[in-house]
């Protein structure tokens, strides 16, 4: 953490190698997060570069520690992903397979999930309401704490915890898993739910 704080300090002083160190530390998790927010893997990789370019431009005005920086980075990423989705609204739906079947992507889920379940999981994630998808992906793909997510999305910590709970209930139901106390019904769609 001290190394990363030093990297942030250097980046704020205009040393691009500091930002490069932050890129090396955070890029894989941020790419994993972005991949859950856009349909195409290529778009996620493009956005990753744009997020760090914007961070490099604006980091001098960032006021906080490296802990807050990570939340700030995810806020930029979320805004970029939402903008992209808005721009692509009139584009025909891309097959989800494009986003999840990229060469060079390891398949660490192989042992825990069969391929069919993995696809169901990805489809369920993309079908989540936007706020639930953002929160659960920041938590599980990005590894952010609820407090960091609250900063990134501008919601109270309690609301973040409720969103991640609802997201996991929806995902569990979509995967066919039992969850006592949850009424049967189909997965909430993005259009149906406003978080």
């Amino acid at each position: 953490m001290e190394d990363l704080q030093d990297a942030l300090d250097r980046a704020q002083a205009g040393d691009a190698r500091g930002m490069a160190d932050l890129y090396r530390a955070y890029s894989a998790q941020l790419l994993a997060y972005l991949a859950t927010q856009v349909r195409r893997r290529e778009d996620a990789e493009d956005l990753l570069g744009e997020v760090f370019l914007q961070a490099m431009r604006d980091v001098a005005s960032f006021d906080g520690t490296v802990g807050g920086f990570r939340a700030w980075l995810y806020r930029i990423a979320t805004n970029r992903a939402v903008d992209l989705a808005r721009r692509n609204r009139r584009r025909p739906e891309e097959p989800l397979a494009i986003a999840i079947e990229q060469p060079g992507t390891a398949d660490p889920a192989g042992e825990a999930l069969g391929r069919v379940d993995r696809e169901r999981l990805w489809r369920a994630v993309t079908a989540l309401p936007e706020a639930q998808r953002q929160v659960v992906a920041m938590r599980l793909a990005g590894g952010l704490s609820a407090a960091e997510i609250a900063k990134a999305v501008g919601k109270p910590v309690g609301a973040v915890k409720a969103l991640q709970h609802r997201a996991l209930v929806n995902l569990t139901k979509a995967l066919g898993g039992p969850y006592p106390g949850v009424p049967e019904g189909r997965l909430e769609s993005r259009e149906e739910t406003r978080d």
């Binding site: 859950t36 889920a109 825990a112 999930l113 992906a137 599980l140 995902l171």
Partner: peptide, 10 residues
Amino acid sequence: AAREAFATEV
């Protein structure tokens, strides 16, 4: 399961 499925590399 989701955390494992999301994991990726640049």
